[in-house]
Amino acid sequence: MVKKRQPVEKHDTAAWANIKKTKPESNVPIPDIIDVENAKEYVEENKK
Rank of each mutant, 00 (worst) to 15 (best):
V2D: 11
V2I: 09
V2E: 11
K4I: 14
K4A: 13
K4D: 02
K4E: 10
Q6F: 08
E9C: 02
E9W: 06
K10L: 04
K10D: 13
K10Y: 06
H11V: 09
H11E: 02
H11Q: 04
H11F: 05
H11D: 07
H11A: 02
T13H: 12
T13W: 01
T13F: 11
A14V: 03
A14Q: 13
A14K: 11
A17D: 07
A17W: 09
A17T: 05
N18Y: 08
N18C: 12
N18M: 03
I19F: 02
I19M: 10
I19K: 10
K20G: 12
K20W: 15
K20S: 15
K20M: 14
K20F: 15
K21I: 00
T22V: 15
T22C: 00
T22H: 03
T22K: 08
T22F: 07
K23D: 04
P24C: 03
P24R: 13
P24Y: 05
P24I: 06
E25S: 10
S26T: 15
S26H: 01
V28R: 13
P29V: 03
P29L: 02
P29G: 00
P29I: 00
P29M: 05
I30T: 03
I30N: 02
I30F: 04
I33Q: 06
I34T: 14
I34S: 10
I34L: 04
I34H: 08
D35N: 12
V36T: 01
E37Y: 14
N38D: 02
N38V: 05
N38E: 08
N38H: 00
E41V: 08
Y42V: 04
V43R: 06
V43T: 07
E45V: 04
E45Q: 12
N46I: 07
N46Y: 07
K47G: 05
K47A: 03
K48P: 05
K48M: 01
